[in-house]
Amino acid sequence: MAVINLQKGQKIDLTKGNPGLTKIMVGLGWDEAAKSRSGGFLSSLLGGKPPEIDCDASALMLDANDKLTRKDRLIYFGNLQSVEKSVKHSGDNLTGGGDGDDEQIHVDLAMVPAEIHKIVFVVNIYDCVKRRQDFGHIANAFIRVVNSGNGQELCRFNLTEDYSGKTSLIVAEVYRHSGEWKFAALGEATRDASLSEIIRRYQ
Rank of each mutant, 00 (worst) to 15 (best):
M1A: 15
A2K: 12
A2I: 11
V3T: 05
N5I: 07
L6Y: 00
K8W: 08
D13V: 12
L14K: 00
G17Q: 14
G20D: 05
G20A: 13
L21N: 07
I24F: 04
M25W: 02
V26W: 03
V26I: 09
V26N: 05
G27K: 01
G29A: 04
G29S: 04
D31E: 10
A33C: 06
A34E: 15
A34Q: 14
K35C: 07
R37A: 13
S44L: 08
G47P: 04
P50K: 03
P50H: 05
P50Q: 04
P51V: 04
E52Q: 09
E52L: 07
D54V: 01
D56H: 12
A57D: 14
A59L: 00
M61T: 11
L62S: 02
A64T: 14
K67G: 09
K67T: 14
T69K: 10
K71P: 01
D72G: 08
R73C: 01
R73G: 00
R73V: 01
L74N: 02
L74V: 03
Y76I: 07
Y76Q: 05
N79R: 13
Q81C: 12
V83K: 15
K85N: 13
K85P: 07
S86M: 05
V87H: 01
K88E: 09
K88Q: 08
H89Q: 01
H89F: 00
H89A: 00
H89P: 01
G91M: 05
L94D: 04
L94K: 13
T95G: 11
T95P: 06
G97N: 15
G98D: 12
G100Q: 06
G100M: 04
G100R: 04
D101A: 10
E103I: 02
I105Y: 08
H106E: 14
V107E: 04
V107K: 00
L109W: 01
M111N: 09
M111C: 08
I116H: 01
I116R: 00
C128K: 00
C128L: 04
K130S: 15
K130C: 08
K130V: 06
K130N: 13
R132W: 03
D134Q: 09
H137S: 03
A139D: 15
A141H: 08
A141E: 08
I143C: 14
V145Y: 00
S148L: 10
N150C: 15
G151V: 00
Q152T: 10
E153V: 06
C155G: 02
F157I: 02
N158Q: 09
L159I: 09
T160C: 11
Y163T: 06
G165A: 07
T167S: 11
T167L: 06
T167D: 07
T167C: 03
L169T: 04
I170H: 05
V171H: 09
V171G: 12
V171A: 15
A172D: 10
E173F: 11
V174E: 05
V174F: 05
V174A: 03
Y175C: 03
Y175R: 03
R176C: 02
S178T: 12
S178C: 11
E180V: 10
E180Q: 14
W181A: 08
K182S: 14
K182F: 12
K182C: 15
F183H: 01
L186P: 13
T190Q: 03
R191H: 14
S194Y: 13
L195N: 03
L195E: 02
E197R: 05
I199G: 04
I199T: 08
Y202F: 14
